[in-house]
């Protein structure tokens, strides 16, 4: 079975009026399904750029990116959008919830773009995802009425709703207090225990320690790739799906 993600000699440069700013200098990386991996690095190291490329929000300048064994470099924008709609999802530091929409409406949003889920099934999918993050009693609340932790759990439910192969979490605890941050990380840990592949981008060691594997990036190159000793593990009896 091919790895979920396989990067070979991945480069990324930004161009501003013909001035090239290289960010990634040749990344080789393999990630298997079911892994919980943390990408760490200081500010400007290229970790966010790597996440955007891995999540099909951006394209590499050079190198190959095979997803589920298939090279993605020749895919057009619509094909990449389809992968985003069906196979990957994101949890952002800034939550990115629609402020005047309810929790249910926010969680249903990705289903608008999922070709495999009928409109009549959307509510059921969304309710299931909301229940899995423990927010069933907040379903009809506007996202602006939620606490920071609840907002991030709503964002996780939104990421879960399409049942993706891969979830990206970009500094998911960055805007939360430590108690809420812990809750969010526990939810991600449970998701991983339930079989979801999670790629966590963070600069906080304590957050990265929830992952099985930590990849350090520095100056656009992988500095280290180590198996981590997990700080805590979600209870096995939690049902997510």
């Amino acid at each position: 079975m091919p790895p979920l993600i396989s990067l070979t000699g991945l480069h990324k440069s930004y161009f501003n009026e013909e001035v090239e700013t290289p960010v990634l200098h040749g990344i080789d990386l393999k990630i298997d399904s079911g892994e919980f991996i943390a990408i760490m690095g200081p500010s400007g190291s290229g970790k966010s750029t790597l996440m955007h490329i891995l999540g099909f929000l951006d394209r590499p300048t050079k190198g190959t990116y095979a997803f589920l064994g298939e090279d993605t470099s020749e895919k057009n924008d619509d094909a990449l959008a389809l992968i985003r709609a069906t196979k990957v999802s994101f949890v952002f530091q800034a939550f990115h919830l629609l402020p005047r929409a309810t929790v249910l409406e926010n969680v249903m949003l990705p289903l608008l773009y999922h070709p495999g889920i009928a409109p009549s099934d959307r509510e059921a999918y969304a309710r299931k995802a909301i229940a899995s993050v423990g927010l069933s009693d907040r379903e009809s609340f506007l996202s602006s009425q939620l606490s920071g932790g609840q907002k991030q759990r709503t964002a996780i439910a939104r990421a879960l709703v399409t049942e993706p192969a891969l979830i990206f979490a970009d500094e998911p605890t960055g805007n939360l207090d430590s108690a809420s941050g812990l809750q969010v990380m526990e939810v991600l840990e449970k998701l991983n225990a339930a079989g979801h592949t999670i790629i966590l981008v963070t600069h906080e060691r304590s957050t990265a320690e929830f992952a099985d594997r930590i990849v350090h990036i520095k100056d656009g190159l992988i500095e280290s790739d180590t198996r981590s000793h997990k700080r805590r593990r979600a209870s096995a009896d939690v049902k997510l799906k």
Binding site: L57, A81, H96, L109, L112, Y113, H114
Partner: peptide, 14 residues
């Protein structure tokens, strides 16, 4: 919101 929708799988046409 446009960025978010694109991240969630919206095509330019959508």
């Amino acid at each position: 919101e446009i960025g978010l929708r694109k991240a969630l799988g919206a095509r330019p046409r959508d």
